[in-house]
Design a protein around this nucleic acid. Structure first.
Lengths: 260, 260
DNA sequence: CCGTTTGTTCCATTTTTCGGAACGTAGTGC
DNA sequence: GCACTACGTTCCGAAAAATGGAACAAACGG
């Protein structure tokens, strides 16, 4: 286990629910001896990857991560294109739009398009959620080969909300349904009372895969309205697939071979 | 030189002007042998700090930096407070506001408040600029002790625009002027035709130091308007200094001792 | 003043890293 | 078809760094 690996393990302890950590927190979360934790935290702080609050002595991601994180946005083409289209749809429907990517079996929110409806934005950019309990998460999974999916989902299937697939078999059934229809949906899963519909978009040339979704309050929308969202998404998906050369039908590995 | 140091050296090669790099770019910029570069890039990619475009094979900051960069924003109190006040001033004056921090002898833009005037935002968040050629950069430097300043400015004084201090003596004269007046200004320095005024704000309890500035087109503003900006900034500075317990008059080292 | 919590430093051992050189692998010109 | 070059990866012994247990230090609480 290299020094870099250990450093990354520390960095991965930080999340939206734990934006800053004390020495002890890090030690518990990583399970490393005190001496190693001490040395690593100092290194990470000295190099700018972490900052330490002089008062509370707690650690948080540093200036360098801020700078690099901004640069990550440059990675555009596919995302920017999708975001433009998503803005149109959100403006028309009033709902909130999300763009996310897959990382392991989790999805990470990259962009948000706030809607005009009074549903609060609940997943800020950077938020991680198990892909199996969101509409665009499942949409992305559905684009992978069955063996890739099996490799990503933890062996002991995680505890999920009632409306989500409760085991691997149910998950695969749901993914196959998505593969047929091209659109994925969810209701009352990650968040009580919130529903969403989404689809996955792959880039023909880069092999990237992103999920695009629109979310809304289940109570505050009618069946008719949700059908309209579905139409909008279908149209957006068709348009984006043409624009990006999405080779629908092939799994992502067949294209690029670069598993994340 | 540890593995982490080398990794950081690679990460620091990325910037707004160079958001992605090829293998060769990295090798030239770091001056390391090919084998080391190869191994390190692979490690960084595997751990998520970098991504590699499957097509162009170029590297860019990865998903992990995006996530951590978002978390850096949580580091708020001082910045959020300042941003709120800055928004008010920008709304009243129509100019663009900046909040930045010092890193070595450079400043890094943290927040931008776009104004209503048609001056384009030229420094996106994450942008690095030598602190000696900006108004808030100099304002922050002026809050350090003379020896700290000397330690930060490179020994061979950098080549700077005509209106900026041309050598260390001129710089110190300018900083002393800022120390007297509390407000710093710049015109036609970092960007042709753009002027700005700013000040530095320190937090009494955390010892943090940030720079706050308002920038405008020199041609499109009158002397009277700039005097108004100065009044606005003076008022904002006074208010913020009360709110944050800024111990004006002391250098930052005397407070916290934590040099970045 | 002693026990606890919290974090740092020491140091011998183990593990990585380092970097020169050899080894692929395309692409390019002739 | 063949040398030539640009670009990158893998190998391997020497050298350097990480590791973690234990001693040490500092702050806190009672």
């Amino acid at each position: 286990m290299s020094a870099l690996t250990n450093a990354i393990d520390i960095l991965r302890c930080f999340s939206t629910t734990r934006p800053d950590l004390s020495f002890a927190d890090v030690q518990v979360l990583t399970g490393k001896p005190k001496s190693s934790t001490s040395r690593l935290l100092r290194s990470l702080r000295d190099c700018g990857l972490l900052e330490q609050d002089p008062h509370s002595r707690r650690y948080r991601p540093g200036l360098l991560t801020f700078e690099l994180g901004r640069l990550h946005r440059a990675h555009d083409d596919l995302i920017a294109t999708a975001e433009r289209e998503l803005r149109d749809v959100c403006a028309r429907t009033g709902h909130t739009g999300y763009i996310a990517v897959l990382d392991g079996y989790q999805q990470v929110v990259l962009r948000i398009v706030p809607g005009s409806n009074p549903l609060r934005v609940v997943n800020p950019p950077g938020q991680r959620t198990p892909a199996i309990i969101t509409s665009n998460g499942r949409a992305m999974l559905a684009r992978l080969s069955d063996q890739e999916i099996r490799a990503r989902v933890p062996l002991d299937y995680p505890k999920v909300p009632g409306n989500s697939p409760q085991n691997f078999t149910e998950l695969m059934a749901r993914l196959n349904e998505i593969r047929r229809s091209g659109i994925s949906d969810a209701a009352d899963e990650a968040i009580e009372g919130v529903g969403s519909q989404g689809f996955a978009l792959a880039s023909g040339e880069s092999g990237e895969l992103i999920g695009i979704a629109v979310s809304y309050s289940v109570q505050a929308t009618t069946e008719l309205e949700r059908a309209n969202v579905r139409r909008e998404l279908g149209a957006m998906a068709a348009k984006l697939r043409r624009m990006t050369g999405d080779p629908l039908g092939q799994t992502i590995e067949q294209l690029a071979g670069l598993a994340s």
